[in-house]
Design a protein around this nucleic acid. Structure first.
Lengths: 199, 199, 199, 199
DNA sequence: AATGAATGAGCCTTCATTCAT
DNA sequence: AATGAATGAAGGCTCATTCAT
């Protein structure tokens, strides 16, 4: 009965909803989920506190939408790297591009990545959303690869794990910056591993 | 004067401080950092609310100590796997053991891992602590390997990245459980990658 | 200028105002005054939120109108029981009928009765309205009785108090249901008391 | 886990809890349950907002305690009227005393009575508490009467209903004050009815 | 006359931290 | 050193009412 959330149909409404998501995105990035309050989100979105609850069930619901936005921001440019390819794929060229893209993304999304991941661990819905979106990515890439005539064993496992490795390396590269690590060397390692995986 | 935190010298005090850290560890694991309040920590540690602030500056300070405990709980059994080895190392045997250990650890530390990582992203001190402890691990393993007469190029990069891969896979294995992934296959992939890396 | 409330003249408007009152009646009955919000009333009435304030000054104003509707719904069937009577009145028959009617009414108006009464206690206007409507009832019944050639001392006091007793018993009967009370016995008590009062 | 409410053992704590209840009592009386906020209750009780939730689960929990206080304030003087009696009871004398007491009580508790009753209708716990306390009263009076050698049929039904009648009349007398009612006459009616009931 | 999106004050509740004992 | 009651600021959310259309 209560708590019905408007499904915005009109453009102005959709735009306003997006402004709120964008504001949430920024603030969660800057100070994390728990460091952000709804009033602040509303303020940055240029709307009133109340209307936020016209578009979202609660604060966590904003997070879920931010998560979707994040995934798109992160994976769309990633997927687009496959778009102009024609068989046969030259992994020697593709893989470094993918890594570069992942690094770029990580730089642009420093904090939100962890913010979202951490929420996933304590919130089943966020976690489910995360898994669903990851599934989506893996399957899309798999689809693209098969259209590009890449025929390998266990493609889903390989793709999924390759993504993990790339994420992991990008994270290292952007965030941790240990003194004793030569990241150029490490990157070459990753490239080699991935090439071996897909050839 | 006011904010001085006791450096517990006497054994009873040290033991009490450790009980608080252990309680924090448990609760952060169970319900995360923001799902835990200090009263609860005190209660589980069997001390009064007030005295917590005798041993710790604030709640975050507990987290920092929990982080150290966590790292030890996670990496000590890992390091111990190297202890009884004699050269030459059979990576064919060692690597699966390391992976098994990582999975076991992940299972026992489901939530705290994310809790800590997420805090790291929004808290510079936590992050610094994290990096320092990772450094420590990498260097220790490197030391062990060289004593075991393993001579490879770029050992630090390889060790660090190998740890990343193992963490990443364990995480997959314990948390996400995508339907379409055959985790046995994936595990074999990881083993092969690591063997190639160290041979 | 601002706060002027339309006095609906046209039939369509009057009908709409009544729909709002009816919706308020239902919702106040179901979840009480404070459990109901104006948006919900508008929705159930099939009108927009805004227009409610075209017909009513504020939420309390709706309550006042609901009160009137309530009194009518409650007392009209009550009064109608006197309509077909011809002198001399057989109280032995009438009184049980009145009680039955009161019980029926109570059952159909479980919550709104208390909702209205409680508002009366904190709101002078509601209270005044309540008293005025009760006066009206008492005088109407008195009128009917005298037309039915019932000549008793202090008719107004007796009628008013009889109504109180009936209300009180019906309330007991419908709401409280104490285990140790035999409500059939109690009902007979009420019938006897009222018979004695009017003979 | 959370939300544990202190069971105050020490006198100072008990006194503080009582101060909060008394403050709630006053405010609910003055402006009703929904017209009162917890900050106001705390302020009037001379405590901080937070500590209220150290003694009570939530706002409603305060209401429940206020209800108990109310019942005691109302019924204790009522019950005490039976204390000095010796058999045989002269109802001619007792009944007017009871009525006087009920009127006095009503005057001193103008608004809270309705406030509580209305909450009962929308809150099962409050209602249950109400019923339990009414039961208690009825049984206590029954006990007293039997010790005073009053032997009547259906004592519980009679007592309960007599209480209803007295409440009802007192309410009329104190609150409604209809112009056309001679309350002296009405009171005599009540006395007579009750005498007939218990003889 | 009508819509329903928008406003923003206000409320209940929590909790890190302090303080009297 | 220790207790645990007390503080009070802050946050999520609701809803009566207004306003642009």
């Amino acid at each position: 009965m209560r708590n019905l959330v408007r499904q915005p149909q009109q453009e102005r409404s959709i735009e306003k909803k997006n402004r709120i998501i964008e504001a949430g995105y920024q603030l969660f990035s800057e100070v994390g989920y728990y460091g952000t309050n709804t009033a602040e989100i509303a303020k940055r979105a240029g709307v009133s506190t109340g209307i936020v609850y016209g578009y979202f069930q609660d604060k966590r619901d904003i997070l879920i939408c931010v998560l979707e936005l994040y995934i798109n921001k992160v994976f769309d440019p990633f997927l687009r790297l496959f778009d102009k390819l024609t068989p046969p794929i030259d992994f020697e060229i593709l893989i470094p591009k993918l890594i570069e893209q992942a690094i770029k993304t990580h730089k642009n999304n420093r904090k939100i990545h962890e913010a979202l991941h951490s929420l996933a661990s304590s919130d089943e819905a966020v976690n489910a959303q995360f898994i669903a979106l990851e599934d989506n990515i893996t399957l899309k890439i798999s689809d693209k690869l098969s259209k590009l005539e890449v025929n390998i064993d266990n493609p889903l496992e390989k793709i999924h794990f390759a993504m993990d490795i790339i994420q992991s390396f990008s994270h290292e590269y952007v965030f941790d910056k240990h003194d004793y690590i030569d990241y150029f060397v490490m990157k070459e390692m990753v490239v080699k591993i991935l090439k071996d995986l897909f050839n």
